[in-house]
Design a protein around this nucleic acid. Sequence first.
DNA 1: GCGGGCTTTGAATACGTATTCATACAATGA
DNA 2: TCATTGTATGAATACGTATTCAAAGCCCGC
Lengths: 347, 347
Amino acid sequence: MAKKRPTRATSHDVARLAGVSQAAVSRAFSAGSSISKDKRERVLKAAHELHYVPNKLASSLSTARSNMVAVIVGNLNNPFYSESLQAFVTGFQESGRQVLAFSVTDAADGDEVVQQAVYYPVDAIVVTAAPLSSKLLKISAGLGIPIVMFNRHLDSNRIAGVHCDNRGAGARIAEAMHSAGAERFLIVRGDPEGSTSRDRVEGFRTYLLARGVPPTGIEEIDGASSYGASRDSLRARFRAGDRPRPDAIYAVSDIMALGCLDALRTDLGLRVPGDVMLAGSDGIRQGRLSAYDLTTIRQPIEQMVATTLQMLESAEDLKNPDMIQVLELPGEFIPGSTVPRPPRDKP
Amino acid sequence: MAKKRPTRATSHDVARLAGVSQAAVSRAFSAGSSISKDKRERVLKAAHELHYVPNKLASSLSTARSNMVAVIVGNLNNPFYSESLQAFVTGFQESGRQVLAFSVTDAADGDEVVQQAVYYPVDAIVVTAAPLSSKLLKISAGLGIPIVMFNRHLDSNRIAGVHCDNRGAGARIAEAMHSAGAERFLIVRGDPEGSTSRDRVEGFRTYLLARGVPPTGIEEIDGASSYGASRDSLRARFRAGDRPRPDAIYAVSDIMALGCLDALRTDLGLRVPGDVMLAGSDGIRQGRLSAYDLTTIRQPIEQMVATTLQMLESAEDLKNPDMIQVLELPGEFIPGSTVPRPPRDKP
DNA sequence: GCGGGCTTTGAATACGTATTCATACAATGA
DNA sequence: TCATTGTATGAATACGTATTCAAAGCCCGC
C-alpha cells in the first residue's frame, strides 16, 4: 500500500485545537447556526491554521444531498453540446452545485454510463444524449433520482424534459426550400435512435408530402451526427452518378450541415445556394461565422438551460407523475445565405 | 421540510433481506473479496430485488478515495478546451474515475473556484485555465491534493504539468512568415496573465528581433482569447488609417485567428494570404475546415491528455517535490493556406 | 483422531459531518 | 428576587460503506 497522503484536517482536529466540540466546528461553518460570534471566530482561526476545509462528501452522508448533478453529454465535438455543457456548468456553479460530467459516445453503452452516474448519489441527472431505454425510468423511480432530458424526449412523456419544436423546425426549413423552388430533396439524418433527428426528419417530410412532393422526391442518407461522416457521405452520394442530384439538402444538425457545405463547395466545386441549397438546425456559433452563414433554426440554449435548472429547483415535482413537465420551446428561423430568400413581390 | 425522497436501499437492507451481515454485502460487491460463491449470489439477488446500488460517496469516506477528479476549464467556447475536456472525460471514465467539472470565466475568481473544488475530496485537480496564484501551491501542499497543470505552467516549476513548447511554436510561425517576406508584424495576444499566450508572444518576438526586425516593426493588440473580440479588434486596427498596415498577423490561438480571418476577408475585403498573411496556434478542428485551412501549430491533445492521466496514476510522485515533472511536448507545424509556402528553389 | 493452514463469516469500528437532545447559561420582565 | 424565554453548548447518534479482528468452519496429511 502506498503511504497515505497527509490526511487533511477534520472538524475534530479543529475542535481540539480551538478547545470546542466538534459540533461547534460544524456550526461555525454553516450559516444561520446558533453559535456565538467569538466562538465562531476562534473556530475559524483554528481552521485556518490547520488548512481545514469541510468535507462536502461527508456532509452529503448526513444531509442526503450531494449537491452534485450528473450531466450526461454525447459528442462534445458537436458544438451544440459543448455550448450546452458550458451553460450547465456555469449555471449549476452559480447555484452552488457541481457538475459530474459523463460522456457517452457509443449509443449502446448509454445505460451503462447512467448506471455509473447512479453510483454517486447525485441530486439529479441531466441527459443530453443517448437514446435511453426504459431502464432509465426504473432508475428514476426506484432510486428516486430526478431526471431531466435535454433536447430529447420519450414518446411516453414519463420523464421531464426540455426540447425544441423539432417537427416545426423541419417543417420550417422545408417551407423555405420549397418556396425557393426546390424539387428534389435530400435529408442527411443523424442518430435515428434519437428523438431530435427523428422529429426533424418527420416534420420536414410531412410538410413536403402535404405540398404534393412525391415520396420519391425525398431521399435520405446517413450523416452519423458528425462533420466528417456527413462530408464523406454527401460527397459519395454526389459522385455516384446513377441518380439525379437533389437541389436541396437538409442536414438535421448544423455540424452535419457544415460538413455538407464543405463537401459541396470544396470537394465538389458546387455553389451554394446557386447549384444546390442547404440548411441545418441548431444555430451553433460556428454556423454563424461569415465563411459559412448557414441557414438554420436556432435552439435557444440559454433559455433551455435556464428552464432545466428551474425544473430541478422544484425537484420534488419531478417525482410526482402528475407534475412531470415536458416543455417544448419554439426555435428561431435564421435566414442565412445558403437558401435563397423568398422574392418580395411574388407570393 | 420537503418530504424525503424514497430512500434508496442500503447495504443493511440488502443484508437483512438476504439474511447475511452487512459486511457480506460489501464483500459481494467488491471483486476479489473473500466470499463464497453462493452467498454472493444470494446477496446479488437480494440487491437486485431492492434496486440496491452501492453508494460510492459513502465508500469514499472509508477508503479515502473519491475516484473523482476536478477538471477546471476556462472558456469552453474555445474549441481547444472543449476538445480537451472531451478527452479528459473519456479518459477518466475509462479508468473508472469521474470528472467534476468547474468553469472559470473571470480570471479573478480562479482561486475561488479551486476552493470550491477542494470542498470535495477530489483525488486530483487538473487545471486547464486561469492564471493561478500561489494559493494553489498552498492548497496542494496543505491538503495533499495533487495538481496537474494542463497547457499552463508556473515559472517556479513547483507544480506538475504538461504543456507545449509555446516559445518554439511562436518562433516557428515567425520563421514561416519572415521567410515568406513579411516585414511588419502584428500580434493578437490572448490573456496576458496566462503562460501560454505569453510564451508564444515571446517566442515570436525573440525570433524576429534576432533576425533584425526592428522593435517598431512588431505591433501588438488584444484579442481577449475569443473569436468576437479578435475580429472586432483587428477590424478596428485596420480601419484606423493612422498607421501603416501590417503584412503578417500572428493570433496566438486558433479561435482568435479565425476571428481575424473573418475580419480580414469578410469585413475588410482583403485576401489572405495575398494581402496579408495570418497564422494561429493550437490546431483546433475548426481551423482545419476547408473554408479556413489555417496555418498553425498543432498541440497534440491526445498525447497531452494521456500524459496527464499517467502523471495522475503515479499520484504519489506529485507530492514529492523531487519527482515533480513539468513536461514540454513539441507542437506540429501545420502548413495551411494562410501563409505562403516557402519557394522550393530559392533558399 | 488431531494439529496446522486456509477460507468464510459476522461483530465492531472507523471514516467526517450534521443534527437531535438535553443541559447550562444569559437576558429579560415583573 | 424569581420565573421565563431564548440562545449556546457538548454528548451522542446517524448517515452508508470498508475493514479489522477474532472466531468458526473446512480440508489436508500424518
